[in-house]
Each structure stands twice: as structure tokens, then as C-alpha cells.
Design a binder for these strands. Sequence first.
DNA 1: ATGGTCGGTGGCCGA
Length: 343
Amino acid sequence: MDLNKIRGLVKAGVTVSELSNQLGAEFHQATVSQLYQWWRSNRLVVERTWGGILDEPELVGYTDSSCLLPDDRIQLQTQIAVETLKIATWNVNSIRIRLPLILSWLSEQQPDIVCLQETKVEDHQFPEQELREAGYNAVFSGQKSYNGVAILSRFPLKEVQHGFQDGWDSENKRLLMASHEGIHIVNVYVPQGQTEDSPKFEYKLQFLQKLLSELSSRFTAADPVIVLGDINIAPEARDVVSAEAMQNKVSFHPREHRFIEQLREWGLQDAYRRFHQEGGKYSWWDFRTRGFERNEGMRIDHIWVTESLAELCEACDIDFDNRSQPKPSDHAPVICRVKNDIR
DNA sequence: ATGGTCGGTGGCCGA
């Protein structure tokens, strides 16, 4: 199959039957699969007049039961959609209860890649169909009740890895990696840790240590790597309401700050702090104290990038508006925009 | 205010 020839013809815009005529014997199953892949990833515009019955063609979006018809006019989008990549992280606190908000947010924000945490569903219950209809492929790693991570993407993801490569702590679904156009995506849900004297805090610190060794064994700081998720650590005093009150408290503990320091030493930087210096900007607020209404929270959801990606980063923002919607998660999404210079 | 509210579960736990 001559992919460049097909790409050229479809970029110019053709009907399916014209394409079939022009390709002749070269039009076969692989060609059709390619068209569907483009369609599924929202790169193919499909216009349908039902054999001329409609004066104005209707736009046909991809669903699992969609079929291309011979007189459909198809056109492959040029790289407009990927000139800048919009990459987000969001702890959704149950994908089942949050699905309506997730779908409206996807359609409003149009992110290209979204890392989700605390999906809280087993894989067979993951709403793959609904997300695909919204234009997203998904890879996911879930369990009953707790944890659960997923990556949504407009494009097919590559090099998917579930959990740590050595299988450590594989029963807790907190880590999911994939790649897109050479960018390595590390989606992580770091354990919360409860209190300083809890075994859960030791588990958190061990998890962080494992995460660091996973990063340094898989990548170098020269690679384009993006580590994002619910890190459950507020790095600095300006990321909490009161550093005094948080002294030696979990999520603001010196031993956790040591990990943040090691992340920086390895070559990662906090994308949000490239663009915003002010304090009092949080990504999580406690439901119990009505923290959001009082703006009392912590900035614990982060996007960390290596230097090569940092230079391409154009923006990084917390989506506060999402948190004020009905039935919000206790976390707001964090979104960054990365210039895509990989052509 | 050592409380409070969510979400998932199953007769309490995790955040």
C-alpha cells in the first residue's frame, strides 16, 4: 500500500468511490483500515449527501457503528490539529460518576492527550465506547474501588506500559506510560500517604523512589519526557495555604520535598511554574472543609517536563472553571500546550 | 470547629 499516494489523494478531498477508481487494484482492506483510523482519530472529515438527497452535506462523526459510503466525500486534515499539542492531567475521582463532566470538558477544551487518575473502575467497566464517540482512543489500567489510571488520546498511542517494568506493586493501578510522536508520557497517581507515622507514608516514599528509578532506567533527561498526574505533594510554601501549619505534614513533608528535588536533579521541571509565580493557586480542595469556596487547597497535580519539552511549552494552566461546575471532582484539571515541532 | 463531604462498597474505607 502506497500510504503517501493515498494521503495525497485524501488530503485533496475525494469521494470514496473516486478514491477507489483512482487507486484501482491498490484499493484494498488496508486502505479502508487506514481511512477508518484517520476517521476515528478525528483527522478525516466525512461529508455525506446520501446520493445527492441533501442539498447541504452533513458532517458524519466516527462511532463504532459508522460506515463509509461510496459517495461520501472525505478529506484528510493537514497537521492543523497537532501544531500545538494540548496535554492535560486530571484526577477525576471516579470516571463513572464524572463521565458527563468529562465529556463536556473534552468537547469544550479539545485536549489532544489526557491523563486521568482515580478512575476507580475495572477495565471491563471503562467507558471506552463513550470516549471513542467523543473522538478519543483510550488505554487504561483499572481496579475495583481504588486507584485506576487512563490515557485518552486523539491519536493512537504507542509503547504502552502498565505499572512498573519490574512488576513492583502491580496490584495497585497507579502508573501508565505511553508515547506519542516520540514524546514519552508518564501518567502517575502517587499514594496519598495519610500521616507521617502511617505505613502508608512509607509506601508513598517507596513508590516515589521506584518512580525515580523507573524514569532513569527508561529515559534520559535528553529525551522528551512528560511526567504528569496527581503527585500528592505540594512542592513549595506558595503551593499551600500555610507552610507553618503544614510543617512536617504529609503532602508537604521534607522527605517528599527531597523527592521533588531529585526530580529536578534528574532533569524535570514544573511546567506550571514556568508561567505562573504567584502563590494561592491550587489544583485540589478538600470537599469536607468546602475548601474550594474558601480557596484553601494544595497544588498537588503537576506536569513535569524535560528541557527539550520545556522549551516547546507555550502555556500551563489550572482549569479552575472545571472545579466550579456541578458535581466536580475534588481536583481540577491541569493543562499544558506544547508546540509540536516534530513533523 | 481534631469536624466536615464525596465516591465506592456492602454493613466502613480512602481521600
